[in-house]
Amino acid sequence: MISAPAFLSNPERFMAFSRWAAPLFGGLAVLLAITGLWLGFTAPEDYQQGDTVRIMFIHVPAAWLSMFAYFCLGIASFLSLVFRHALADAAAKSAAPLGAGFTALALVTGSLWGRPMWGTWWVWDARLTSVLVLFLFYLAYMALRSALDDETKAARACAILALVGLVNLPVVHWSVNWWNSLHQGVTVFAKGGPKMAPVFLVPLLLMVLAYMAAFGALWLVRIRGEVWRRRADAALSRLART
């Protein structure tokens, strides 16, 4: 039995795998999203939140994915730093814009949910602020990547920055316990099992899976593009030499 990163570390094998895995994940994402949205829109209105509970089905998955994408970015950066593997660096580089997109979605949908529920677009509590900081980390990562011309140096510098930023993730996750605020506490993973009614929990989990599948598909597509870009770069420098 060969482990997944080891199996995919070979670029040829990765390209062969992602060729069918990317569309598969994409199709899976569409199916899961359709099911999740159908169940979500047929669910009864929440007695407290009314119709706005529908925003939860796209806000919570985006918030989870903003952290999940950073987690993937961190792992890929670690692998690229330790094994100096080009594919791991391509994976890290490709995860950043996707993660930034999910983080922006989490912030915007959260704001659109907060306005009718709390009567304000934005609350400066630790959790929201941490997500904003996560967004800034994505921006800093992409800025550093584009400011360094030497690609191997950029890869290592960005990997170091990603690992430094990884200490930010626990702060995002646990800050909700440090500060009491308008933001509701952790509902899904609260002590004693989920507190949410199954009519809401099932579509929510389906949407989380849909977002994850979509992230997987887009990630694979971007890594493929990155591999081709490097092949084109290599071919160009070979052509220039002869």
Binding site: T129, V133, L136, F137, L139, A140, A143, L144, A147, L148, D149, D150, K153, A157, I160, L161, V164, G165, N168, V171
Partner: peptide
């Protein structure tokens, strides 16, 4: 240290550092 050798290093340093300052 991370923005060594980068274009517009000074500004880049601020962009990298300010998120670290938040905690």
């Amino acid at each position: 240290a991370l923005s060594l050798g980068a274009r517009r290093g000074g500004l880049l340093t601020a962009v990298i550092v300010l998120p670290l300052f938040t905690p």
